[in-house]
Design a protein around this nucleic acid. Structure first.
Lengths: 346, 346
DNA sequence: GTGAAAGCGCTAACAT
DNA sequence: ATGTTAGCGCTTTCAC
């Protein structure tokens, strides 16, 4: 508990034969120190290996240089990439992230509030998909006047800053790729309906269809989960109902694999009989059988940008919350092929 | 920057008409306060919504109640499960984790040191697989006298506390399952050789073979990565060299899937011709084709236990660092079947 | 350009 | 059982 005694500003001052204040000026890069004094103090600092103690600085300056990274599920690969970018960016600006798990449950909101009240985090990065019933969660946080940047979560009227990937664009990109290959009967297996990303990818799909003059067949839209099972079961159901389709847009790579599985069981070949495009470009996509064409999202960059903006909001309270959308990239592998008109239907 | 003014202990004291010290006694649950005073102060605290500011408490008490969660790769699913357990446990004991990414590069050690020097974290949870050359990293940290608990990383003579999963046991369990099914020619596709988990799973494999009196054929041991590609390429090579084997023990589920892919290309069936057992029980395993038999590791529990022990070390410096190994579980699905003696060989 | 004094919010060590 | 006095390590006045 009571570890190695740390070197304090006092030690440095005593050693350098100056006042504590002068040392403080040096570590804060204030202009009013003579070059010689500054240099000498700096040398002393280096020699002693002194590092100012953030807590004490914060107490005096009423700053903590501390951020909260809140999410509902650490194990979500999407989150972990964002966290990677966020942590990197924070470090570069002298901030650290406290980790908080909201468990997607309002009951756990207390944990986040404790971060704000006990630790005085100066900003919160809220990384989570949009559940309708979670609105209170955030508006409650906002009452504290602490800057919040959300990723993947936007509730229209909150005026929160949001950095995310352009899911509408991604959905459109996936669908247009299929359309470009000649497909017109394109099924879509979606994620859970309450997610913003799901809503948006669906919107992109509809936009692409409309733009190409292809009528929307609601019977080809199914889904409701993020797991293999979602792709597997929904595709199987589509097949059993005798729906005709030549391509599937899956809302993530796992769903795509599940769909491929169902197709395989039904004796259908990917991409010969049915093309499949996934979403996320997870590690599995490349070595799927066949390698999966998918949509890649720049999540690390999103994490960096979100953190950068959060810090900007902290350092300039007058800044207007903004919404930024990053573009997705189409990663072409071999699960999509030109439409095969020999395959029958309905 | 200068947010809502927080309520301080002074406000509570003034409001309750007592001294600051008495309020302090109440929030620290000290015995020497009369029941009535305590109750009245508590009411005042609740009314005002007062929460002590951790930084100030820490400055006075020379504590920070802050931990460092250090890893080399946030996106590793293994890490994220540990982090989930760790965060939960820390919260329950009034600690918070600062996030730090070591990037598995000694150059980034500075980030961790900054956590220690600037923020005075009281303990470090070091979650990472064992790379030989990373020893300095940790021994350097130990010089600071800060308790360290490692997960998945043990260097024999450092005397560090380590909580992990029993990889030797897991390797043995996987291999014994195969042996129990009558397999004697069991190939193994390993992860990167420098990882402790790889070394241990291999050891478990060898132990099981020896115990069953099966001679070890070094030519059946290959690998060196964690990706699908590792399973795919090594299995393909095994096949091309004409090695005979009726089962494969893959060091993780991705490798297992890669191996299955190679087998499929060669016209071999899983499990009819070759049985495959994976490791990790990732989400992919259940919906693999066929569903993958695998070894499950209780990672969340490991994260909890590691954090619990870290806090114990902080609160009782006299405690002896210990090593704890958690047991794995065999998850039987359908990628393993009794050996098929009809399949030829070498 | 530099230093002395005061204080951030809290706890420790004494008082009483 | 309660209050007073220091002081944690630093920054912010305001002197000089």
């Amino acid at each position: 508990m009571d570890k190695t005694r740390h070197i304090t500003i006092k030690d440095v001052a005593a050693q350098a034969g100056v006042s504590i204040q002068t040392v403080s000026r040096v570590i804060n890069n204030r202009p009013d120190v003579s070059p010689e004094t500054r240099k000498y103090i700096q040398t002393t600092i280096d020699k002693l290996g002194y590092q100012p103690f953030a807590n004490a600085r914060g107490l005096a300056a009423k700053r903590t240089y501390t951020l909260g990274l809140i999410t509902g599920d650490f194990t979500d690969i999407w989150f972990s990439h964002i966290a990677t970018g966020a942590e990197k960016e924070a470090q570069e600006h002298g901030y650290y992230f406290f980790l908080g798990n909201s468990n997607i449950a309002p009951e756990d909101e207390s944990r986040i509030l404790r971060l704000l009240t006990e630790r005085h985090v100066e900003g919160v990065l809220f990384v989570r998909a949009n559940y309708e019933n979670e609105n209170d969660h955030l508006t409650h946080l906002r009452e504290f006047g602490v800057p919040i940047v959300t990723v993947g979560y936007l509730w229209p009227d909150t005026g929160l800053a949001m950095i995310d990937v352009d899911n509408i664009g991604g959905g459109r990109q996936a669908t247009e790729h299929l359309i470009g290959l000649g497909h017109r009967r394109i099924a879509m297996v979606t994620g859970p309906t309450k997610w913003k990303s799901v809503h948006d990818r669906t919107e992109g799909y509809l936009q692409a269809l409309r733009k190409a003059g292809i009528p929307v067949d609601r019977a080809l839209i199914c889904g409701g989960g993020w797991e293999h099972r979602t792709g597997y079961e929904n595709t199987k159901a589509l097949l059993e109902k005798g729906k005709s389709f030549t391509a599937i847009f899956a809302h993530n790579d796992r769903i795509a694999r599940g769909a491929a599985h169902a197709l395989f069981e039904a004796g259908l070949k990917v991409p010969d009989d049915v093309s499949i495009i996934g979403y996320d470009d997870t590690a599995e996509a490349e070595f799927s059988d066949p390698p999966l064409t998918t949509i890649k999202q720049p999540m690390t960059e999103v994490g960096e940008a979100a953190t950068r903006f959060l810090i900007q909001m902290i350092e300039d309270p007058a800044i207007t919350p903004k919404q930024v959308l990053f573009d997705t990239t189409l990663v072409i592998r071999s699960s999509c092929a030109p439409v095969n008109h020999n395959r029958g239907g309905e």
